[in-house]
């Protein structure tokens, strides 16, 4: 068995086989993800480490079902993503996947608590407004921002905004948290605080996390690190050095 092929396990959450994503066509085409194979077990924290532009954000979008124009195989929660309809995939995303983005993507016209409650709009699970509100307050309290529930995102610092984004991702108690450069827009100190928060959350919930980053400081969170370079996963000390050099 080749090193980059997934090892058979009892219950993997993510199984990617020869996953590729090509942009453009003909001579102008570019492979952002190139034949990637790996798997992620339940409760595992996997760090995908690589330089800017190596395809790791594209890979994360594929894992979250945001981008379906891929080649190869991708199974999530035991289901083949290629076989799911748009509605089924959306329901899966709404119910079981949380996203944290580098740019936070908070909605400026909503208050903090309304931002946190936004995923409930699309949740297939029926909940009353009061239940959603209570749940949102709980997660805001967990990230230390209950007192800013009625503030607007513009009134918050970068670190606070990322906490709100994390709270939003946690609202529906997802099985899988996909984080794209979660500390990329934060200063070192604030970034450390967010990393601490991730560590605490993981210890509490044992949620599966896939974090893509080019910052090695997130390494302390990871059970496993996958190195990515030019759309491919590379292994070994040599490869690690190549990644860091790049």
């Amino acid at each position: 068995m080749a090193d980059d092929e997934p090892r058979p396990t009892r219950d993997p959450l993510i199984v990617a086989r020869g996953l590729s994503r090509t942009f453009g066509a003909g001579d102008a085409s570019r492979r952002a993800v190139d034949g990637v194979s790996f798997q992620v077990e339940r409760g595992e924290v996997v760090l995908i480490f690589g330089p800017s532009g190596c395809g790791k954000s594209t890979l994360l979008a594929l894992l979250g079902g945001l981008d379906r124009n891929y080649q190869g195989g991708l199974r999530l929660f035991g289901r083949d993503l290629g076989q799911l309809s748009d509605r089924e995939l959306s329901e899966l995303r709404g119910a079981r996947i949380g996203f944290v983005f580098q740019a936070f993507h908070l909605l400026g016209h909503l208050t903090v608590i309304e931002n946190v409650m936004a995923p409930a709009l699309f949740s297939p699970k029926p909940s009353t407004a009061a239940e959603v509100n209570a749940r949102a307050l709980r997660v805001l309290e967990r990230v230390g921002l209950a007192d800013r529930a009625e503030s607007r995102p513009q009134e918050l610092s970068g670190g606070q905004r990322q906490r709100v984004a994390i709270a939003r991702a946690l609202l529906c108690e997802p099985d899988l948290l996909l984080c794209d450069e979660p500390t990329g827009n934060l200063d070192r100190k604030t970034g450390e605080q967010i990393i601490d928060l991730f560590a605490e959350l993981q210890a509490e919930s044992r949620a599966t996390m896939v974090i893509v980053t080019h910052e090695d400081r997130l390494g302390r969170l990871a059970d496993r690190t996958l190195n990515m370079l030019d759309g491919r996963l590379v292994d070994g000390v040599e490869s690690q050095r190549q990644v860091e050099d790049a």
């Binding site: 509605r87 936004a118 699309f122």
Partner: peptide, 16 residues
Amino acid sequence: QHEIGLYRALGASSAD
């Protein structure tokens, strides 16, 4: 566009 992308990430389908 950003908002629609976000809603899709949060679980909205294209039909939604």
